[in-house]
């Protein structure tokens, strides 16, 4: 069964053509970085990754349904449009992840400046 699944699924690696183009971001960690610097660097990189996805609109939703979580029951708005579409849920997930990363970064460096398009999540209680 494993072999069969292997043939069907796609590798997680992106192609050579989509190698990182995040400006000013290095992808090789210099050997003299302290663990603390490394942690800050990784958090920063993860935030940049998410920023790029949210900005471009290419949220990185896997094509392979096997790499996606099962869809929840649809929720419809007053106008009959589905609210919890896959795109909406991925965007929400990315924003939540980014929020957690910004919190981590702030904890490590109180002077940390979150990205310009970052907004803290709504503090009001949601049902």
């Amino acid at each position: 069964a494993r072999k069969e699944r292997k043939r069907r699924r796609k590798s997680r690696w992106g192609g050579e053509e989509e190698k990182s183009t995040l400006p000013g971001l290095m992808t090789v960690i210099p050997p003299n970085m302290t663990p603390m610097q490394q942690e800050c660097f990784l958090i920063h990189l993860k935030i940049e990754d998410i920023n790029a996805k949210l900005r471009s609109g290419d949220l990185g939703i896997p094509e392979d349904p096997g790499q996606r979580s099962p869809s929840p029951e649809p929720i419809y708005g007053a106008n009959g449009q589905r609210l919890n579409t896959r795109e909406f849920r991925w965007k929400q997930r990315l924003e939540k992840e980014r929020h957690e990363l910004v919190q981590q970064a702030t904890k490590l460096n109180p002077k940390y400046n979150p990205p310009a398009d970052y907004k803290p999540p709504d503090s009001r209680v949601q049902d």
Binding site: K19, T27, P31
Partner: peptide
Amino acid sequence: LSGRKFANRTVVSSY
């Protein structure tokens, strides 16, 4: 591999 994408995340490397 550095800078490539893996599951849509940017790969960083070290030794």
